[in-house]
């Protein structure tokens, strides 16, 4: 028998009001917004790779990863790219504007399980957003990892997000950086090629590596297959996935990927769990 008295009564679909306190235009299409709660209650504390449903009343809400340092919830931020109506309106917000917010939802990067390993972080484009929280978390306790490497691939030089962070990470001896551009560009003197072309240099010891990967589906598929072939255990290759999400809490059905709900079983999943479904077209 169901014990109705024991069930929660607060609707998980009810958002809270948050206010934009800072706007950082990363590129013409990407903005990092920093938020504070506008209801006088505590802000959202999240773990690396968790997401929130952020929206504008009357327009709708979308899933976006928190991109700030999880250790400092007072700087709660999201880095958003203009895709369609809702993200465009979010990207164009100014300090003082209000948004609706729910979260945090979903699984986190396995920061602790990865301790004692080489940490290989692979980002494609804006895939760096949900990885930024992993990087800052790892750097704070860099001695717990055998090494920390970032492989970051972009399509255009102008696509660069987190420019200040990238500069700081370049200068940080704990961090080994492998930047690449998909195709040649007069403004770029670094390596050309997909992220997989940097693995020879970035992957130190497959047997003791934990990889954290985020980018477009095709890129994650390629990296998952490549790292597996190079000897990284499927269960140690972690991805964060995107799927259409209307609720974020396992109640709307939209985010299904095979038997998985990306909003609650993911977005962070390992290649052993998610890999088999990547092989099925239109799953």
């Amino acid at each position: 028998m169901l014990d109705f008295a024991a069930l929660p009564t607060v609707d998980p679909m009810l958002p809270r009001p948050f206010r934009v306190v800072r706007v950082l235009r990363e590129t013409s299409d990407v903005t990092t917004l920093t938020f504070e709660p506008a209801d006088g209650l505590a802000t959202i504390a999240f773990g690396p790779a968790q997401m929130g449903m952020v929206g504008l009343p009357g327009l709708g809400e979308v899933p976006i990863s928190f991109s700030s340092d999880p250790a400092d919830p007072s700087q709660l931020a999201m880095t958003i790219r203009r895709a369609g109506a809702i993200t465009s309106a979010l990207v164009d917000l100014s300090a003082g504007d209000s948004v609706s917010m729910r979260g945090p939802y979903g699984t986190e990067w396995p920061m602790e399980a990865a301790e004692g390993h080489h940490l290989l972080i692979v980002a494609g484009g804006l895939g760096l957003a949900p990885l930024r929280s992993a990087i800052v978390t790892a750097l704070r306790r860099a001695d717990r990892y055998r090494s920390i490497s970032l492989v970051y691939g972009r399509r255009e030089v102008s696509e660069v997000v987190f420019a200040d962070d990238l500069a700081a990470w370049e200068a940080n001896p704990a961090m080994s950086m492998h930047l690449t551009l998909d195709r040649a560009d007069p403004d770029w003197s670094g390596p050309i090629g997909l992220v997989t072309s940097r693995m020879d240099a970035a992957l130190l010891d497959p047997a003791s590596t934990t990889a954290m990967v985020c980018g477009p589906d095709v890129m994650m598929h390629a990296v998952g297959a490549d790292l597996t072939q190079r000897g990284v255990a499927r269960g140690k290759i972690w991805l964060t996935m995107e799927r259409n999400m209307k609720c974020g809490v396992g109640l709307c059905g939209h985010c299904q990927f095979g038997p998985l709900f990306i909003c609650k079983d993911g977005p962070v999943l390992n290649w052993a769990t998610a890999g088999p479904f990547y092989l099925i077209a239109e799953v």
Partner: peptide, 20 residues
Amino acid sequence: QDEALLGGPYIDTDYARRRR
């Protein structure tokens, strides 16, 4: 539907009321 909507961790509170 009880399992899908009330199984948690998050539940459909409107369904819960009607169902109760």
